[in-house]
Each structure stands twice: as structure tokens, then as C-alpha cells.
Amino acid sequence: MTVTSTNDVPQDLLPAVAAGDLDAFEALYDRHSSILYGLLLRILNNREDAQETLQETFTQIWSRATMFDRERGSELAWVLSIARSRGIDRLRSRKVRSERESEAGQEISVISGGVENRSGMDSAVASQTGVLVRAALATLPEAQRKALELAYFEGLSQSEIASSLGEPLGTIKTRMQLGMKKLRDGLRPLFDK
């Protein structure tokens, strides 16, 4: 199973990065840094933290590229998973929930103001995939979409989500399962069966 969002599927760079190819690493950075930085800004809501976490993310990519297995998922999914994991770790460590509320007014214009400032052809691939994912997510009922976003962007546990939304834990589990299944249906064109 591979992501084939466009006819021009970029070649995986991670095998070369795993071999210590700095040029490939730079190309990988150019390919993914914008979407990863945007993701970290969304999670952390703080530029300085996002930049430090992006550096951690690429350091981890550089040191663990040998662990990438194309058969288990795409390069894009792999780097997204690392960035999200690093971002959630930092979010939890700084216990920033209250800070996020206070800083929201300052940062939100950058994050959701639509200032997409991306470079390079490869970013377009992620962008097109992102459009599809956003569209699929938008079709979900608000309750399901909210549960998925709390899990993904805030790293909340199922119990925390249930508490945050004031719903029973079982209801939250069901919502997330249904939401993911609908996302899968909506993104089916992305996958090469």
C-alpha cells in the first residue's frame, strides 16, 4: 500500500538519508519541513517551541532513517508521525494547556490565517494530499472530527477527551472509530489497491 496522491510520486529519500547522504537529507528537509513546521505550530502554538521541536524531529529522522520501512507506510506518514510524537511530548512536558489559551490570540493568525508559505515542488504533493484529508475531515460530524483532533493535535487520552467533551468514554471511542472509518472511506482514492 502506497500513497499515490499525484502521478508524480516523489522518490523516497530516506534510504539515502539512512546511508548518511547529506544531500538527500537536505532534500528531505526541503520536501517536508514546511508541513512539519506547520504541524508543530498547530500542536504547540509557539514558534520557538515549534522550531526547537522541528530540529529534534529532523535529528531523529537523520539518526533513525534506517528504521524506515516502505512496506509499513509512506515516507510522508513516517516523518509526520515523528514530528507529531515529538510535538506531543513537548506539549505534555511544558503543561501548556493554559498557556495555549493565553497565547492563542497571538499565534492563531499565523496558523489558521491561511498564510501558506511553502516552497518546492515536493511540498505540493503534501499540499494536495492535505487538501484531500481536510476535505475528508470536513465531511465528518462535528463531534467525530473534534474527538479526532483532540487525540491527534493535543495528544489527549481517551479519558481526557471524554472528560473534555463531557461524554462517556464509550461514546468517545465509538466516535473516533467511526470518524477514522469515514476518513478511510473519504481517502480511499489515495491508496493504490
Partner: peptide, 26 residues
């Protein structure tokens, strides 16, 4: 599902990081 789960991150708006960050990372 794991691929889809990761792709939720693409709903965040892409933003170019500062140029000096790339230099530091490289």
C-alpha cells in the same frame, strides 16, 4: 489506518520555517 492517522497532520497549514533553522539542522 496508520497512514490515515498520520495524514491528519496534513490538515495543519504548512508554514516555511526560518532559513537559519535549516542551516542549524544540516
Amino acid at each position: 489506518m496508520q497512514e490515515i492517522g498520520a495524514m491528519i497532520g496534513l490538515t495543519a497549514t504548512a508554514v516555511d520555517p526560518p532559513a537559519d533553522l535549516k542551516k542549524r539542522i544540516l
